[in-house]
Amino acid sequence: MKKINCIIADDEPLARNVIKNHISRLERLQVVAICTNGAEAFRAMKEIYADLIFLDIQMPQVSGLDLLRTVTKRPAVIITTAYKEFALDGFDLNVLDYLVKPISFERFLQAIDKYENSINPGLSDYPRTLTDTNLVSSEPFIYVKTEKKRVKIELQEILYLEGIKDHIRINTLNHGIVTYQSLNYFEERLPDNLFLRIHRSLIVGINHINSFSASKIEIGEASFPIGRTYLKKVAVRLQNL
């Protein structure tokens, strides 16, 4: 199997080590350069062949975003940052994915799958190597706190989660469940490959989307508007369906 050559560009030693350790757990990836500032990353992209770069946004000398605006011939880019507000800027510069620190291995793996699908659609559906399969245990369900107990919900059965005043209603194939946990709480814990936030008060199950346009999504007989601040993010996600 051809190795995927990776550059890590980040001024924080801990952040570099996290990405390096994640890469070391996948046989098909290898690190070809580690950069501590934007200038080093610029030289690495010019001098070293790489398929993929994990690029921090805020670095000394040259920021990650300035680097993307400067270098036209570059590897696929996965942004790594502690700041969610830069996401739209990154997608405007045609980055592959946007990882918010701290970066879990599960989220890292989703980004790698997205890269592999971008160069060879369907590749991420192939069986993983033995080294890969020992790494992530992603449960197909969650327990939701209600007033008196915790209720088990299968992820594949969730149609959408809707924020209504001071509570959240989780609508599934069979029933609805009310919880007082926040929508942000669920956004952080639900897998990105199955769920998508389209509005400040709505998260939808991607597999249950019947149709969509630039401004709305339909699930069953329900129709939901896409929030203005979510339009670009949702468009990027839906174009890969």
Rank of each mutant, 00 (worst) to 15 (best):
Y49G: 07
N5Q: 11
L231S: 14
R228K: 06
S118D: 11
G90Y: 01
N207P: 03
P102M: 12
I158G: 00
S24W: 10
F108R: 00
T80I: 08
I142V: 11
T172A: 02
F108P: 00
Y180K: 08
N17V: 09
H167L: 02
L238R: 00
A76K: 09
V178M: 05
A50P: 03
R200E: 04
T131C: 06
S63P: 04
I103E: 01
A87P: 00
E187F: 01
N171P: 08
N21H: 11
N37D: 13
S201L: 10
G38Y: 03
R107C: 08
E218Q: 11
P102D: 06
G176F: 10
D11P: 02
L155D: 01
V31P: 03
I219P: 01
L55E: 00
V71C: 10
D51G: 02
V95T: 11
A9Y: 02
N193L: 04
Y143F: 15
K84W: 09
T72G: 08
E47H: 04
N207Y: 08
R69P: 05
R150M: 10
L14C: 10
A33L: 01
E147D: 13
G163H: 08
G163M: 13
N207A: 08
D11C: 04
D66Q: 15
I153D: 05
A44V: 01
A33N: 00
V62I: 15
E106W: 06
I217K: 02
A111T: 14
R200H: 13
Y126K: 12
I34M: 12
K114M: 10
N207H: 15
T133W: 15
M45T: 00
S137Q: 15
N37T: 08
Y160D: 09
R28W: 02
T172W: 04
D132R: 14
I8K: 13
N94C: 12
P60N: 12
V151A: 01
A41F: 01
Q30C: 11
E139G: 05
N134V: 09
I164H: 07
L65A: 03
L155V: 08
E147N: 14
L238C: 00
I8R: 12
N174I: 13
Y160A: 06
D113Y: 13
F141P: 03
R25K: 05
R69Y: 06
